[in-house]
Amino acid sequence: MQEGNRGPEARETAGHSREDIQQCTVCGADDELRVHHLDGRRENTEAENLVWMCRDCDQNVNTESEESTTWNNHAVVLPDEISAKIDREFIRLVCVCRRDLGWRPDKTRHYYPLVAVDGVFAVGRMTAEAFEERLVELGLR
């Protein structure tokens, strides 16, 4: 397994040795893994802020968003800052739901509807359990 080019201090802070790393938190790939900072700040090396991602998932999360997104055939134009927040929060929820609950939310079926109803900032404060509970309340899970 080949690791990405993230600093060794982040890997050590994450509490994972090469032997512990098995797969990307998002897609399950087992090669080209690197440390991803959930809040987007490399200086935050707290263990709960760090997850393993493959090169492709990490790049998808870190690339700048397009100007518009389509939700149920409705074009939504968002400022880059808000679009980036939405993307980061989705990745965070994917990671915590997979880690804590053993399932992966779908962006279109689970995440976007909840963001539309509750707002990205409210969703951003949810734990995996609260996210799943809210989805059940709305009949989305």
Rank of each mutant, 00 (worst) to 15 (best):
N44I: 02
R125V: 10
R42Y: 09
G4E: 01
A47M: 08
R109F: 05
N62A: 14
A14E: 05
Y111S: 01
D87C: 00
I82P: 03
T108C: 05
N73E: 15
N73Y: 15
L38E: 07
N62Y: 08
N49F: 05
S65Q: 12
C95T: 07
E12Y: 09
C24A: 11
S17Q: 12
D39P: 01
V123Q: 04
E137Y: 11
A29F: 03
E12W: 08
P105Q: 04
R41P: 00
V35R: 00
A128F: 02
F121T: 13
V123C: 07
E46C: 06
I91S: 01
T13V: 10
T13E: 11
N73T: 12
L138S: 10
E67A: 13
C27R: 06
N73K: 10
C95K: 01
E67T: 12
E43Y: 02
E132T: 06
S17G: 15
K107S: 08
H110C: 07
N60A: 09
G124S: 12
V26M: 09
N62S: 12
D56A: 13
I91Y: 01
V77G: 02
R6I: 11
R104M: 15
Q22C: 11
L138M: 11
E12L: 08
E132S: 04
R11D: 05
H16M: 15
L78G: 03
L140V: 13
V120W: 08
R98W: 06
G28N: 07
A14W: 03
E89L: 06
D39N: 11
G102I: 06
D58F: 01
H16L: 15
I82D: 09
E12G: 00
P79H: 06
C57I: 05
A10K: 03
G124K: 05
R6P: 01
T13I: 10
R88V: 00
H110I: 08
R6F: 08
P79A: 09
G40W: 02
D100I: 07
Y111V: 07
M1S: 12
L101S: 04
E3S: 11
V117Q: 14
T13W: 09
G119R: 03
L50T: 02
G139C: 14
